[in-house]
Amino acid sequence: MKTFLSLFMLIASFNLFAAENPTVVMETSKGQIIIELFPDEAPKTVANFLAYVQKDGYKKTTFHRVINGFMIQGGGFSAKTGNKVSTLPPVENESRNGLSNERGTLAMARTANPHSASRQFFINHKDNAFLDAKGGNWGYTVFGEVTLGMDVVDKIAKVKTASQDKPVQPVIINSIKLLDREMK
C-alpha cells in the first residue's frame, strides 16, 4: 500500500508539474525579474512572446519608455544602436481574456490599431484598469505576471527620464530566457 501511495504521489506531482505555466527569467541591468506567462488566457500572445524569447530576440534591448506610477515598456529598441529591432507579424488582440492590467502584470504594447502588437511589452507599475477591454473597446492584452522581482520593476520605474519618457541612462534587457523546469 505504501508503494502504491508513493507511486500515486509521484504521478500526481508530475501531472501538476506538467500543468505549470511557462515562466521566463528577464535579466536586466537593474536585476532579475521572473514572469509567469498565461497561455490559457492569451495563447496567441504567449506564443508570439515565446517566439522572440526562443530566438534570443530580446537580448540587449532596452526599456525605452518608463513612467513611474504607470508602467515600464521595453523590448523594441536595440541597446547598441538605439534603433527599432525587427518584428514578427502583429498578433491578434486577446485583451478580452478576463485578465486585468494590475500592478505587476505583463501586457503587450500596441498602436491605436488593437491588432498591432508585435514585440514590445510593458509591466504595469500600478493598477491600470483603464487599459482593460471595456464594452466595444479593445484593451491591452495581459499575458503574464511578475512572480519575483517587483523590487527591480520599482527600481526601473524610478530612473531619471528625459523626453518621451526615455531613461537618461539606458536600462538594458540583457536577456529573457525560458526557465528550465528543473531549475524551479
Score class of each variant (00 low, 15 high):
103 R>S: 09
103 R>L: 13
92 E>A: 13
128 N>M: 02
144 G>H: 04
123 I>T: 01
134 K>I: 05
30 K>P: 01
85 V>D: 01
157 A>L: 09
131 L>W: 06
64 H>P: 03
34 I>A: 08
153 V>M: 12
71 M>E: 10
48 N>H: 12
116 S>A: 08
57 G>L: 12
21 N>F: 05
53 V>W: 14
34 I>Q: 11
66 V>G: 03
117 A>N: 08
98 G>K: 12
151 D>H: 07
140 Y>G: 08
130 F>L: 05
89 P>A: 13
160 K>A: 15
133 A>K: 00
126 K>V: 10
138 W>R: 04
36 E>N: 11
70 F>Y: 12
135 G>H: 06
116 S>R: 09
64 H>C: 03
152 V>N: 10
60 K>L: 13
98 G>C: 09
21 N>S: 11
112 A>H: 07
22 P>G: 02
153 V>I: 15
86 S>K: 14
77 F>W: 12
146 V>A: 11
83 N>Y: 05
74 G>Q: 08
151 D>E: 13
78 S>Y: 03
150 M>N: 12
78 S>K: 09
29 S>E: 08
70 F>I: 02
152 V>D: 05
71 M>W: 14
112 A>K: 12
88 L>P: 07
119 R>A: 10
152 V>C: 10
156 I>F: 13
85 V>K: 13
106 L>K: 10
29 S>W: 04
84 K>L: 14
118 S>D: 12
49 F>Q: 12
137 N>M: 07
56 D>R: 15
145 E>I: 01
58 Y>H: 15
153 V>S: 13
134 K>L: 05
160 K>H: 10
84 K>P: 15
126 K>N: 01
117 A>V: 06
149 G>S: 09
98 G>E: 06
30 K>H: 14
122 F>N: 02
20 E>W: 01
121 F>N: 01
141 T>Y: 01
97 N>V: 00
146 V>H: 11
130 F>K: 05
62 T>Q: 10
64 H>F: 09
48 N>L: 06
150 M>G: 03
127 D>F: 04
80 K>F: 02
46 V>H: 09
41 E>L: 01
90 P>C: 07
65 R>K: 14
118 S>Y: 01
33 I>F: 13
109 A>K: 05
80 K>A: 14
158 K>P: 06
106 L>N: 10
54 Q>H: 15
48 N>S: 15
140 Y>A: 10
107 A>H: 02
